[in-house]
Design a protein around this nucleic acid. Sequence first.
DNA 1: GTCGTGACCGACT
DNA 2: GAGTCGGCCACGA
Length: 115
Amino acid sequence: VNFYQQVFSIVKAIPQGHVATYGQIAAILGSPRAARMVGQALKDCDQTVPWQRVINRHGMISIENMEVTKDDQASLLRQENIEVQERDGNLWVDLNQYLIDSTTLSLLVENLPHD
DNA sequence: GTCGTGACCGACT
DNA sequence: GAGTCGGCCACGA
């Protein structure tokens, strides 16, 4: 199974209205230090992957595709009842409120039908 | 096979 | 406190 595929599976497993960090996903993959790989994978993801639910440790969006802007991500998140605050020109999400537990997420991942 | 790279994270000045 | 530096590890050239 490709690393990327696993990343996609986990991202897809994030329930609506919740977000996860790169570090969490990397940890679930078994490599807590491989958060960068997660980002790399997400950059490569297709439209079926809700990449907007994946944010960095500070609760904000690092970068945007040329196709997709932070505003788009904010819109998507707001559609999921996630409150997005603007601060210093960056969009923030309240991690305490919306960040999913690593345990819960890993459970969700186990429940996934693996490809 | 080797080298460089990166949507990050944590430790250390 | 904020800025810097290294490490992690899969992927592509």
